[in-house]
Design a protein around this nucleic acid. Structure first.
Length: 578
DNA sequence: ATTTAACTAAACACCG
DNA sequence: CCGGTGTTTAGTTAAA
């Protein structure tokens, strides 16, 4: 189907506009992205090693020279050499891969573009490349886009696409980009300083311009924008494909963010040994609001995992909303948040929770889920899908460090929720009663619309007929080329998996919503109706040894004994000590 | 400005 | 009587 020659972006756009972006095409896109990601991961791995080497060298110089350290030094040097070789190898592979892609016409690389903006390298290249990808999809091209992309890594769509489409593609994928390590440490938090104020009205509309990726049609007012939105970005395959790509974009950014956080964590904890920096702590940078944080800094055991990067140290939530402010000081525990994004954003708690389970276990952060969501999660995780009240309590304290204090409050809230919501059903048992979840009721009681682009929702809603194959292709592609080797090297890659889950659950939720008003729903289209819930492989209960967060930093005089049976309510809560 | 959902607090009943 | 459980009401707050 695809000609082996390079097709022009215009042709590409034609394909995208007129033809369906077939699963095969999508798969190629995904492969491309994965290739990019692979390269980036290798880069990071390499950089990390380099940094470690540097640090070790520094320390050794500091501590005086002893022969055994020299040995170490040599060892590390050889290690680094190996990494370098590996990196080179991978880059060659990648280039081959990209060449293939190029031949397939999905990628038009012009080698020898000397204007490689190093800033984008410093940002890990991914945003720029993804933006490039966007333009491959949408057909707009400029040369300066990568530069202007720099100030806002999240806004890949709007600011940088010029209307004068010039087929002047500068995709920077050469190996030199990665090998010269002058790229400084990337600072993702610069996105927080982005002055890109999104209007309150619509995330796709700002500054009189349609912010649909790749589109910058000028709309004078909001109604005209809506009109434009409905006409130009109505449900079609292009929009759907663009949504997919945008999801990937977000996912990539999150992946990168998480890895950077991980690196930061490693750096901090590493330095923590030497220096007097006591406040290094996991920070949930992308929670819906940093206001949900409690005093995690003093509690959350920065030394718990000094060099095991597999454990998530901060939530990897599928939304990137709040500005990520990295502070090493403690954050005040402000009052309750009323909207948990699990409801607000229709983000399935299971995927998010699965990713951040460890984090919430150890960091005293209020989980951004409603009590109802949490209770449901706890019940559904149980083997029998039922829990006694006390077991629910225990689940809370086990899973969330936050719920190890103020027991009277949240237990009351739990009981209150159990009673209040119809989705929780009390079932009399031989010995007492257990609580179960009425899933229908639970889904029913959340008519809140999904935030984000409403058109996306609408598209998905009405396009599930072929969204499913897309999703299937996505998952299949991910399963096939899911970087089995390399992701495990740096971190277990939950991002892609959770993306699949998110898509699946998204579709689930949407399909359930639309089932009532399904206008022309095709009858046989529910292959995944039954799976509301992607089950987190739950750990056996006894697995939780009491040393979960070995935080020794607790300021109060109570020791953090995390006995499951011991409840924490009787501890004097001295929370306002600022 | 109004409504809604979530949270918190608390009163109260029931029961072992 | 006490503590755990369950129901209900009321007030507050943030978001829609």
């Amino acid at each position: 189907m695809m000609t082996p020659q390079v097709i022009t972006p215009q042709q590409m756009q034609q394909i995208l506009q007129q033809q369906v972006l077939t699963p095969q095409q999508l798969q190629v896109l995904l492969q491309q992205q994965q290739a990019l990601m692979l390269q980036q991961q290798l880069q990071e791995f390499y950089k990390k090693q380099q940094e470690q080497l540097q640090l070790q060298l520094l320390q050794q110089q500091h501590a005086g020279k002893q022969p055994k350290e020299q040995q170490q030094q040599q060892q590390v040097a050889t290690q680094q050499l190996a990494f370098q070789q590996q990196l080179l190898q991978m880059q060659q592979l990648q280039q081959q891969h990209l060449l293939t892609l190029q031949r397939q016409g999905l990628l038009s690389i012009q080698p020898g573009q000397p204007t490689l903006p190093l800033q984008s390298l410093a940002q890990g290249m991914i945003p720029a490349e993804l933006q490039q990808l966007w333009k491959e999809v949408t057909g707009s091209h400029t040369a300066d886009d990568v530069v202007c992309n720099n100030h806002s890594t999240l806004d890949l769509s709007t600011t940088c696409v010029s209307s004068t489409a010039q087929p002047k593609t500068s995709l920077l994928l050469n190996s030199q980009a990665s090998t010269n390590g002058q790229a400084s440490v990337l600072t993702l938090k610069r996105e927080s300083s982005s002055h890109e104020e999104y209007t309150h009205n619509h995330p796709l509309y700002g500054h009189g311009v349609c912010k649909w990726p790749g589109c910058e049609t000028i709309c004078e007012d909001f109604p005209s924008f809506l009109k434009h939105l409905n006409s130009e970005h109505a449900l079609d395959d292009r929009s759907t494909a663009q949504c997919r790509v945008q999801m990937q974009v977000v996912q990539q950014l999150e992946l990168q963010l998480s890895k950077d956080k991980e690196r930061l964590q490693a750096m901090m904890s590493h330095l923590h040994v030497k220096s007097t920096e006591p406040k290094a702590s996991p920070q949930p940078l992308n929670l819906v609001s940093s206001a949900t944080l409690s005093k995690t800094a003093s509690e959350a055991s920065p030394q718990s995992l000094p060099h095991t990067p597999t454990t998530p140290t901060a939530p990897l939530t599928p939304i990137t909303q709040g500005p990520s402010v990295i502070t090493t000081t403690s954050i005040h525990n402000v009052g309750p948040i009323r909207r948990r994004y699990s409801d607000k954003y229709n983000i399935p708690i299971s995927s998010d929770f699965a990713q951040n389970q460890e984090f919430y276990k150890n960091a005293e952060v209020r989980p951004p889920f409603t009590y109802a969501s949490l209770i449901r999660q706890g019940i559904l995780e149980s083997p029998e899908k039922q829990l006694t009240l006390n077991e629910i309590y225990n689940w809370f304290t086990r899973q969330f460090a936050y719920f190890r204090r103020n027991a009277a409050t949240w237990k009351n809230a739990v009981r209150h929720n159990l009673s209040l919501h119809k989705c929780f059903v009390r079932v009399e048992n031989v010995k007492g009663a257990v609580w179960t979840v009425d899933e229908m009721e639970f889904q029913k009681r959340r008519p809140q619309k999904i935030s984000g682009s409403p058109t996306l929702i609408k598209n998905i809603q009405t396009s599930h007929a072929y969204c499913s194959p897309l999703s299937a292709a996505l998952q299949a592609s991910m399963a096939e080329n899911s970087l089995p080797l390399y992701t495990t090297a740096s971190m277990g890659n939950p991002a892609l998996n959770s993306l699949a889950n998110a898509i699946r659950e998204d579709l689930n939720g949407v399909m359930e919503h639309t089932s009532s008003n399904g206008s022309d729903s095709s009858p046989g289209r529910s292959p995944m109706q039954g799976m509301h819930q992607v089950h987190v492989k739950e750990e056996p209960l006894d697995h939780d040894d009491n040393d979960g967060p070995l935080s020794l930093v607790t300021t109060a005089n109570h020791s953090p004994d995390f006995d499951r049976d011991r409840d924490y309510e009787d501890e004097p809560v001295n929370e306002d000590m600022e």
